[in-house]
Design a protein around this nucleic acid. Sequence first.
DNA 1: CACAATTAGTCTTATATCAGACTAATGCCT
DNA 2: AGGCATTAGTCTGATATAAGACTAATTGTG
Lengths: 139, 139
Amino acid sequence: MDRDDLGFLLAKATQRWNEFLQARFRAAGWGAVRPSYGSILVPLFEEDGLRIGELARRARLSKQTMTTMVRLLERDRLVRRVRDPDDGRAFRILLTAKARRFEPVAEHTLIELNTLAGERLGERRLQSVKHALKEWIET
Amino acid sequence: MDRDDLGFLLAKATQRWNEFLQARFRAAGWGAVRPSYGSILVPLFEEDGLRIGELARRARLSKQTMTTMVRLLERDRLVRRVRDPDDGRAFRILLTAKARRFEPVAEHTLIELNTLAGERLGERRLQSVKHALKEWIET
DNA sequence: CACAATTAGTCTTATATCAGACTAATGCCT
DNA sequence: AGGCATTAGTCTGATATAAGACTAATTGTG
């Protein structure tokens, strides 16, 4: 490892995480699902029909980014956009049947990866890292 | 914090790091230097005149990305590209006087941010996190 | 030496991401 | 009810990043 400042390590650890995710999805026959789709799918698995602004807030992404991402997921037939009946400016983002078929794969993969991290780092250290990252993010 | 899987935390911690960097650069009057420029500048501060492929290797980025980034730094007058006299395919990337003026700002800012992280997380925990991230990256 | 294999870098295309400006719908205040 | 401030989302343009295919230069091998 050439550099060891925290910024570099965080960036590369993120890349590594996404590589793992993509490999697992491909192995499960869902290679078209990109790691970034988690920002939309994970919140919708919890609560379907969220609006774009709310998705952006939960993923801590800008509304512009969320607009773009929702379009990609729509193109890939994972979500549908329907007008919010209560607010003519807004859309409700709804999971498709295809996304529902993907749901168990997503859940299993996330558990698998967190478990892998626990094995690699030690469960105690993993918890400590997560806690530290949360504090850093909230700073 | 809505989600707490490791991937999300890593991504957001990276974003936060870059926000800090950008804010410090701006405050020091170097707002035009983007956080990503570190991938080129930091290795060149260590050893000037590296080639694009070597920069890519050290930053763990693709050659395509490094080509793009070097062009941006050239545009911003932070590096020059000169043909490698020993290899007609390659370029040597050289820091400009402007980049040299930026160097102390970069070094100071990196120290400052790592210190801030040490304060926020505790020095021992920071070291532990760095170590854990390295292991994760090498996995 | 000739030429095949490798290497250095780039081009094209696609994915992620945001800042700033904009449009249209909503809501609030009088 | 009328009008202004706010909110939801989008458009434009820029920054980061990589996969795949390509060109040109170099190197190694017979």
